[in-house]
Design a protein around this nucleic acid. Structure first.
Lengths: 201, 201
DNA sequence: GTCTATATAACGATAGAC
DNA sequence: GTCTATCGTTATATAGAC
């Protein structure tokens, strides 16, 4: 039935919101039911247990953002526009799912082995094309000799950190919501320059 | 009594470990008691409630690492050794308290207002001396014109991210524990160069 | 499929003996 | 100050009527 799929989808959206905001341990099945505007027992009817529902949400969350990032890394673009595109992609994702980065970071550390097996099974890997691109830049003397792994981690870290550290940033730099958003806008423009300059010879 | 203080300290150490590892919602009073090797009811005798015990641990955690970072920023050092010292400080802290950065990030986002008020009350602020140092470097044309806030956030983000993203890094780059530690060692040397080069004219 | 009612277990917290 | 026993609540999960 179409009703069935609709209810299931409704539950998943609500669960995604609550789990991403509060984490597995902090989330309540009742709160998810309220958010989905359905009866609590329906959660068990469709997903059997809190853990199974969580697994689905967690794995969907990773499937949602990981391939998108890898796609940008693999794209047929020069380094500069590629980094710009990557930063843009991260900030767009954050706009749509503000709790996603912190959620994944917290939960993958709670069950690292489970997480690792999932990522391995999904076959998520850094595109070899991107590693080659970095190596080529280095060989052609247009880039400092940096470990490609370091470069990737640095780039993603620079994208993610200001998003998960929001309360700290707002406090230390005395920003309100609006000023923080404005800060992110400015940062979106400046960050690619920072990254590229860091590896420029 | 000395016994009293000792027990209290024992509880705090156990609570710190469990809370930092599992977060507030994921932590169990029984597990803290087991870790401290005392009776569960003692936790309430000394700290009344789970929330009060957590507040103490959370605030102590911040008081433990925040001033240390600010001290380095304020130190009378040239920019290069200061960044080296900052990176060193972060990695040393992580060696002692592997869950601390993720713990603070997760919990401050769960209760941002409570967090903000605490930081404000503690009077934690970015040393004006450091901001001046950045401005001076820019004015003397030895540094690109970067917003000092961006520079601080970038530096700290680059220190923290590889620590909180450990399971992801280990999986994507196919590292075991030993290789990850080795990667961090290499990174400790390379990171200051990356940061300084990013703002070099 | 969806609801109400309830089982069952876990958790934070307290009472009271020592 | 420390222990055992237990209260009261809340959480996940299920049974059973419709």
């Amino acid at each position: 039935m179409s009703e069935e799929i609709e209810t299931e989808q409704q539950i998943l959206e609500a669960a995604k919101q609550i789990f991403q905001e509060r984490g597995f341990a902090g989330a309540r099945m009742q709160e998810i039911a309220d958010e989905a505007d359905i009866n609590k027992s329906m959660l068990h009817y469709y997903f059997r247990s809190k853990d199974k529902l969580f697994q689905k949400v967690f794995q969907d969350s990773i499937r949602q953002f990981f391939p998108e990032i890898l796609k940008v890394l693999h794209a047929d673009l020069a380094l500069t526009p590629k980094i710009e595109k990557l930063v843009e992609t991260y900030y767009e994702m954050f706009r749509k799912h503000p709790h996603l980065p912190r959620f994944v970071i917290h939960e993958m550390n709670q069950h690292p082995d489970r997480f690792k097996e999932f990522v391995k099974n999904m076959g998520f890997e850094i595109p070899e094309t991107f590693v080659k691109q970095i190596r080529q830049e280095i060989e052609s003397d247009s880039m400092l000799n940096i470990d490609p792994r370091e470069f990737i981690i640095n780039t993603i870290g620079l994208c993610v950190f200001p998003l998960i550290a929001r309360p700290m940033i707002e406090t230390v730099f005395k920003m309100n919501n609006e000023q923080y958003q404005q800060f992110l806008e400015q940062r979106k423009k400046e960050l690619p320059k920072f990254i590229l300059n860091a590896v420029k010879k």
